[in-house]
Simulated assay, not measured.
Amino acid sequence: MEPILEPALETRPEQPYVSIAIEAPLSEWGKVNALVPEVFDWLARRGVPPVGALFYRYHSVADDVLSVEVGVPVATPQEGDGRVRAGSKPAGTYAVLVHEGHPDRIRDTFAKLDDWAHREGVEWDLVDGVWAGRFESYLTDPAEEPDLGKWRTEVAYRVVG
């Protein structure tokens, strides 16, 4: 897949996933990252293969605390167990941009996407301050590329319309 160096609109179907939700400030982001192996272990114990990249789904930010899910796409809807829950990426049109480089610099990509949306008159799908679909998908497998500076991360925001 070629990187998307400029924002683009894409229509996407609904995609089931499993995830663990958490609220954390950026200063405690290690707690969010620590959920990654737990989600993959949950899938492995059930024999459910991932069908896409690990992602973070952002719901809202209040007082510097982010409400986020750490998730993995699956082929068919699953039953959650309380801690791990079933969900789905909603169908719709998304503004998409691929970030190349260290994840700590992803805010530059967020800003580029926000600036583009403002120029193009594109509105994010928000209801009462909660994003209907704001995803950060990690396209690079850390086992294959340990250099964070070479990672690729897709940013996709669902738009109104």
Rank of each mutant, 00 (worst) to 15 (best):
R85V: 11
R12H: 03
Y58Q: 06
D41A: 14
N33I: 07
D64E: 13
K31E: 15
V48W: 04
S27C: 06
R46M: 02
V74I: 04
E10H: 07
V72Q: 01
V70D: 03
G80S: 04
T76G: 08
D64V: 04
G87W: 09
N33R: 12
P50E: 04
P50Y: 01
R46G: 10
V70F: 01
V74H: 02
P13C: 05
E38H: 12
E23S: 14
R45T: 11
G30T: 03
R45L: 14
P50I: 02
Y58T: 12
D41F: 02
V32M: 00
L54Q: 03
K31Q: 15
A21D: 11
V65Y: 11
Q78P: 05
Q78E: 13
G30I: 02
G82I: 11
P13A: 07
A44S: 11
A44P: 03
V36I: 12
Q15P: 02
I20V: 09
E14Y: 02
V51M: 12
A53T: 00
D64R: 13
E23Q: 15
E14P: 02
S27D: 13
V18R: 03
R57G: 06
F40W: 08
D64I: 04
V32A: 00
E23R: 14
A53I: 01
P49H: 04
A62Q: 15
E79F: 10
G71V: 01
P25N: 10
S60A: 15
R83I: 05
G80V: 05
Y58G: 07
I20D: 03
P25T: 12
V36F: 05
K31A: 15
V51D: 13
G47A: 10
R83C: 00
V51T: 12
P25L: 11
R12C: 09
T76M: 11
F55A: 01
H59E: 14
A62T: 15
G47S: 08
